[in-house]
Nucleic acid binder design. Structure first.
Length: 372
RNA sequence: CCGCAGGUCGUCAAGUGGCUUAAGACCCUGGACUGUAAAUCCAGUAUUCGAAGGUUCGAAUCCUUCCCUGCGGACCA
């Protein structure tokens, strides 16, 4: 039996776990994919959550693919919807950022296949898949799933945005990627993919001659560093949609740590982060401790503080740390200091790799494009 | 193509001829206070009102043209 415990430790949920184990056991050739809109920047969540999953899948012998969703970015108005710019600047930069991420987590970058959306849309078969998906779902369903674009309800939606979910699902079947992987914010699209699995005529998902439902892997979304809205804070229950709402966002630079951030910037962002003393719920510093610091690097948190505050202490498990934090034996400031140092260490391979003029130039071009 | 409504700070939004050197809220920035952040309290932030003309002593507010957005209609009878 293949052991997927390590894979599970870096994901929030796997839908179709039994199928995955069965197919791995049979040594079937399995393809994975994760799609990303070309937006011009990757944050630590992409590296940790997405790349870590790729690393674990690679170790299980799965062929991993990164789908460069330039057409999807166009639909979603990223980088000015400028496909040419994406091709010349966005995608080259993205590949460097992925390379940097792979260095951070130890994934094999050379074995990752890159596929651009703009190449598969040349095929009429692809559009047949889109229609096949669209024929097997309802308009209401699509409308409900539209928040996968990261848009709030009520925002103006042009018709192209309604095509997006059907395309996203079609991507999976057209490319025959048995494992569809994304953040928790994308699960609505994946659930549609699951629902239509048995009805599709054009390109059903086939492994070893057997028709299957694709396997969905969803990784945790790191909490943004900025305070959650008052409404959410007041709620007793925090829903999935609330969590999606609070993820790191490129439009709020202080909410996220980017791969290109210097150690000084990382330190500053962490020190300015929301971190209520003794509270675990909606606390990004605790969330990051658990999902970044204890998953990468030394997998410990080293507190350095004066004797009067309790002296130095090293935590080797998150549970231990959480307990002390709740009992207020660990002050937010000391935790922040330790988390910042940990992140800087974890980011170091990426920081070093990205410290080169060509990459900086691409990064600048994107920055100008976005602010325009 | 026609009709209706609308375009004011990053966002929402008041203002319908002089009291506006454009209110307020949120966001953002700086400061105070906490051994972090948040909360709280101060301070700062549109010489400009979709664009161009025009009327007027005086316009974001009136007129003209154009551009854009939303809604509805028309075409098929």
């Amino acid at each position: 039996m293949p052991d997927i415990t390590k894979l599970k430790s870096v994901t929030e949920e796997i839908i179709g776990e039994d199928t995955l184990v069965r197919l791995l056991d049979k040594k079937s050739y399995l393809r994975h994919y994760i799609g990303l809109e070309i937006s011009g920047n990757l944050h630590i969540g992409h590296a940790v959550s997405a790349m870590l999953v790729i690393k674990e899948l690679q170790e299980l012998g799965v062929h991993c693919t990164i789908f460069l969703a330039d057409w999807h970015a166009w639909i979603n108005d990223k980088l000015g919807g400028d496909l040419k710019f994406m091709d010349e600047v966005g995608i080259p930069l993205f590949k460097e950022l992925f390379k940097a991420s792979s260095l951070m987590v130890g994934a094999d970058f050379d074995k990752i296949e890159f596929i651009k959306a703009s190449t598969i849309v040349d095929s009429s078969d692809y559009w047949a898949c889109v229609i096949d998906v669209a024929k097997n779902t309802s308009l209401a369903r699509i409308e409900r799933s539209i928040d996968i674009l990261g848009r709030k309800e009520g925002e103006s939606t042009d018709f192209a945005k309604l095509m997006y979910p059907a395309m996203q699902v079609a991507d999976i079947y057209y490319m025959q990627t048995h494992i569809m992987h994304a953040g928790m914010d994308q699960r609505k699209a994946h659930v549609i993919a699951l629902d239509v699995a048995k009805s599709l005529k054009i390109k059903p998902m086939i492994v070893d001659g057997e028709r299957i439902s694709p396997i969905a892997i969803h990784h945790h979304l790191l909490l943004g560093l900025t305070p959650p809205s008052k409404e959410v804070q007041a709620k007793g229950e925090v829903t999935r949609d609330d969590l999606t709402e609070m993820k790191m966002s490129k439009s709020k630079p202080m909410s996220a740590v980017f791969l290109v951030d210097t150690p000084e910037v990382v330190k500053e962002k962490i020190m300015k982060a929301f971190c209520p003393e003794g509270q675990v719920k909606l606390n990004p510093i605790l969330d990051w401790s658990k999902n970044v610091c204890f998953k990468l690097g030394t997998k410990t948190i080293d507190i350095k503080r004066k004797e009067e505050w309790g002296g130095d202490k090293t935590y080797t498990t998150y549970e231990e740390l959480e307990k002390d934090f709740v009992e207020k034996k660990l002050h937010p400031m000391d935790l922040k200091d330790a988390v910042a140092r940990s992140l800087i260490t974890i980011l170091e391979p990426a920081t070093k790799y990205l410290d080169n003029p060509k990459i900086k130039e691409l990064s600048e071009l994107v920055k100008n494009k976005v602010s325009r």
